[in-house]
Design a protein around this nucleic acid. Structure first.
Ligand SMILES: [Mn+2]
Ligand SMILES: [Mn+2]
Ligand SMILES: [Zn+2]
Ligand SMILES: [Zn+2]
Lengths: 142, 142
DNA sequence: ATCGCAAGTGCAACTGATTTGCAAATACCT
DNA sequence: AGGTATTTGCAAATCAGTTGCACTTGCGAT
């Protein structure tokens, strides 16, 4: 359930999500959730700042909002490199991402499964993996 | 062939690598290659700057050097997120990396193979993937 | 509905990583 | 050795993100 069906989420529903997460319902937070909800792909902090600044929200507020959301697991923060953090609502479920080196396009890979297997028996043990990122060239850029 | 056997690489050999890549052989570049060669894991720009600054090399020179190396494919640049770029000599071959969210440790996953397969038939086509990054908690941090 | 105050906000100044302009130094081809 | 395009050091600029602080505001309790 990654792609959004509706372009908007109702205020009471947003309020609910916030309260459940133990956060007060403020205009900045509502705006941030709406913004993320409307996007089919993860948004960078910069994109979210740009989206909310015209409405009068300060960038520091936006950054703080995103950190809080990340802490209470309302959003998932992706470290895609290129010194840009990206966020997506965590209710879309865990999935891998692909990022094109050339054009920067990000794809959510809901449709893919990953098999990670040690080649040798005595391979290093990995802890737990909760983010998979692939990088390369998208079809268009290839 | 990821782990280094010898701790040093001879000057003529470094010179050779540089000339082959179409780069002049300068002290800063030699120092950078030696630094990367001596490390079993990818180094961050900051770590390389710290290593070379005491010898009198300016950080801007180090950054420029690393960009040039990346352009001529002498090194491979990893975008591990956390606003930190890491570099490894590209002759160690392509392999995936694991980064611990907690302690920041980076592991080179030479011993692992990856299977990426579409779940549905009509899945999005991926372009070419040349970097795989896993993130999670290492054994120690778990 | 109103109150009190902890939580949240705007603003401006700060950080840390990386980049850039430029004049001086240097690698290397002849 | 000489000439020149390349590389370097330095200082100043960027860019994403953070922080201190005084001022507001959301909301549980009255
Ligand atoms: Mn996604
Ligand atoms: Mn590696
Ligand atoms: Zn692309
Ligand atoms: Zn760890």
């Amino acid at each position: 359930m990654t792609k959004r069906k509706s372009a908007a989420i109702s205020l009471p529903e947003v309020r609910n999500r916030l309260r459940e997460a133990g956060l007060r319902c403020t205009p900045a937070r509502v705006a941030a959730i709406n913004c993320l909800f409307a996007s089919p792909t993860p948004l960078s902090s910069g994109e979210i700042v740009e989206a909310l600044e015209p409405a009068g929200f300060d960038k520091s507020t936006v950054y703080r909002t995103l950190s809080e959301f990340t802490e209470c697991k309302i959003v998932f923060r992706l470290d895609l490199g290129d010194s840009m953090r990206h966020y997506e609502l965590s209710d879309v479920g865990t999935h891998a991402h692909f990022k094109c080196r050339q054009c920067g396009e990000i794809q959510c890979l809901d449709d893919f499964s990953f098999e990670i297997s040690p080649r040798k028996h005595k391979a290093v043990r990995l802890g737990s993996v909760n983010e998979v990122l692939l990088r390369g060239l998208c079809e268009a850029c290839e």
